[in-house]
Amino acid sequence: MHVEEWLQAIPPVWICVIVGVVIGVESLGIPLPGEVVLVSAALMSAQHVVSPVWVGVCASVGAIIGDSIGYAIGRKGGQPLFDRLGRRFPKHFGPEHIARAQRVFDRYGMWTVFFGRFVALLRILAGPLAGALRMPYWRFLVANVLGGILWAGGTTAVIYYLGIVAERWLKGFSWVGLVVALLVGLGTTLYIKRKALRAAGESPVPGPDPEDGQRSISVTSSE
């Protein structure tokens, strides 16, 4: 069953709860379709099935809390945690994924947490990696809160207003206007993702440095 069809069978208050829970669990480092659930709920809010404000609030809270718990798990588990995750979820936590994300963290620090919200790979890894790399929690929290609100609230608002505009144009048979709106929305989304990828330094992992070798997380389980 399609995600939106599944959500439509649920009372509005539980839609918001599910959005927050799915996004929160995804932010822990568990691969779930958080973005798909958020977009589906935002589209439903444009159809007046659920409040867009509560969708955005629950999504933001889930993102912030989930990332914070992920940070704590990463700080406690360190390298052994990522070794276990790599064996369990090789498509998301394989050595090349961890190495790429770590290089981004080494270069951009707390901005990786902020922009990581807009990049699928970093959205899953940001919290646990920040904890494992011992990023100061206050820096992580600032980037986490700002990134979570901008991503969740912004995505909800954009999808909601695009849905409202599309509904009005459909009623007036303005197909040209609808196509233009969809193209503008798609272009805006691609532009934001491209900027996020560029800012976060998302690129193929280069070869090992001959001087200091390939780095890895050196943190072990503690506290």
Score class of each variant (00 low, 15 high):
residue 215 R to C: 05
residue 198 R to V: 13
residue 189 T to V: 12
residue 185 G to T: 11
residue 152 A to S: 13
residue 195 K to W: 14
residue 205 V to Y: 02
residue 147 G to R: 02
residue 167 E to W: 07
residue 136 P to N: 12
residue 135 M to K: 06
residue 156 T to D: 03
residue 155 T to Q: 00
residue 209 D to E: 07
residue 181 A to D: 04
residue 166 A to S: 13
residue 192 I to Q: 09
residue 139 R to N: 11
residue 188 T to G: 09
residue 145 V to F: 09
residue 137 Y to C: 10
residue 179 V to N: 07
residue 181 A to E: 06
residue 140 F to R: 02
residue 144 N to K: 05
residue 168 R to Q: 15
residue 140 F to L: 08
residue 191 Y to E: 09
residue 181 A to R: 01
residue 182 L to V: 14
residue 194 R to I: 13
residue 165 V to W: 08
residue 149 I to G: 10
residue 150 L to S: 13
residue 146 L to W: 06
residue 215 R to D: 12
residue 152 A to D: 02
residue 190 L to E: 15
residue 200 A to L: 09
residue 212 D to I: 09
residue 204 P to H: 05
residue 146 L to C: 10
residue 183 L to R: 07
residue 142 V to E: 08
residue 138 W to E: 15
residue 147 G to I: 05
residue 195 K to L: 15
residue 159 I to W: 11
residue 199 A to I: 09
residue 170 L to Q: 11
residue 207 G to W: 08
residue 203 S to H: 13
residue 200 A to R: 00
residue 212 D to A: 04
residue 193 K to P: 01
residue 144 N to H: 06
residue 165 V to L: 11
residue 218 S to Y: 03
residue 190 L to N: 10
residue 189 T to N: 10
residue 215 R to T: 11
residue 185 G to L: 05
residue 167 E to A: 15
residue 185 G to A: 11
residue 217 I to R: 00
residue 183 L to W: 09
residue 205 V to I: 09
residue 199 A to L: 14
residue 209 D to W: 06
residue 139 R to A: 10
residue 177 G to C: 03
residue 178 L to T: 07
residue 163 G to V: 00
residue 177 G to V: 04
